[in-house]
């Protein structure tokens, strides 16, 4: 390709009053948005710094080994049975177990609900379900926890062996809480599909079922997975509702119906009972750091899924 070099472009702007006014507006708008972004970045970086400095102190200042922290199974920060021990594996296990189980329960329901809204009955299905889902998303988590405690836990106690509290109850409550997240991401993805894609499948003589299972779902799968990961991230970070129904015993439970804990439930429970700067308090910060780290990983997974989707 030939590049035509016209030399430096000679511009002589007429700097009229109007030009100056527009220029000033432009500058003001640009500065304002820049300040907002800068503020956000500063806040995020300071949070990360704060959590990391507190959380890492457990290992660098208090000398707790990272291995003992991550893989130790005994949580005894006050040293009630001799040496204080800071093993958080039971909580990490609890967090993963509840959020994975919640995603497992919620995903099929959400995907079917979003299919119903977008493909099966796009008219009143959407009109009816959309507000319901928005409502579900708006219910405060303490209400979910309360309902869990008064409805789910007794139910579990009657149906399954044990006290009713535990990972199963936590996962059930969480699954209802993450339903809206997965459903709205999935239905957005479904309704943004080009209409021609569906029609091409129909035009080839495929039935609606074949079209949904072979064309529509495979096409939106990465987006649906994004929704599932976002839902899991929400479940992973949820504290209050889980804490109310899980029982809060610091052990790896032997069944889904035995009292257990998650990272978040331990932090909210112990927070008030520790002295700032103590090893116990720092250990809680380390757990917060671990939670934050997991959030980053969830975000990373979402990013990877989105990139794959674009190709």
């Amino acid at each position: 390709m030939k590049v035509i070099d016209e030399g430096p472009v000679q511009v002589q702007p007429a700097r009229s009053a109007r030009w100056k006014k527009h220029h000033a507006e432009d500058l003001a708008g640009r500065s304002y948005t820049f300040i907002c972004v800068a503020l956000l970045i500063v806040i995020i970086i300071s949070i990360i710094y704060f959590v990391a400095s507190k959380g890492l102190a457990t290992f660098f200042r208090d000398g707790v080994s990272l291995g003992d922290f991550l893989f130790g199974t005994t949580w005894d920060p006050e040293g009630n049975q001799g040496e204080p021990q800071y093993g958080v594996l039971p909580f990490i296990f609890g967090s993963f177990a509840t959020s994975l189980l919640a995603a497992l329960i919620a995903s099929p329901l959400s995907i079917c609900a979003s299919l119903f809204m977008t493909e099966i009955v796009p008219g009143w299905g959407k009109k009816l379900l959309q507000p319901v889902i928005e409502l579900l998303a708006g219910i405060p988590s303490v209400v979910y926890g309360f309902i869990g405690l008064t409805v789910v836990v007794p139910f579990m106690r009657n149906v399954f062996p044990g006290q009713g509290i535990g990972i199963a109850a936590g996962a059930l409550v969480l699954s209802v809480m993450i339903l809206p997240t997965i459903t709205s991401v999935a239905s957005d993805a479904l309704s943004s599909l080009p209409r021609g894609l569906k029609e091409s499948s129909f035009a080839l003589g495929a039935t609606r079922w074949q079209t949904i299972s072979r064309v529509i779902l495979p096409t939106v799968l990465p987006s649906i997975l994004t929704g599932v990961v976002l839902g899991m991230a929400r479940a992973f970070g949820e504290a209050l509702a889980v804490q109310m129904v899980i029982g809060n015993a610091p052990h790896i439970p032997r069944s889904l119906f035995e009292s257990a804990s998650t990272l978040t439930s331990v932090i909210t429970l112990d927070m008030g009972n520790t002295v700032s700067g103590s090893v116990h308090s720092n250990a809680l910060w380390s757990m917060a750091l671990a939670l934050m780290f997991m959030t980053f990983i969830f975000v990373l997974i979402v990013r990877l899924l989105e990139r794959r989707h674009r190709i």
């Binding site: 021609g196 894609l197 029609e199 091409s200 035009a203 080839l204 064309v215 495979p218 096409t219």
Partner: peptide, 12 residues
């Protein structure tokens, strides 16, 4: 009856 649309819409 085959049908083809304005915008190419291959399956993914």
């Amino acid at each position: 009856i085959g049908m083809v649309w304005q915008k190419p819409n291959p399956f993914y």
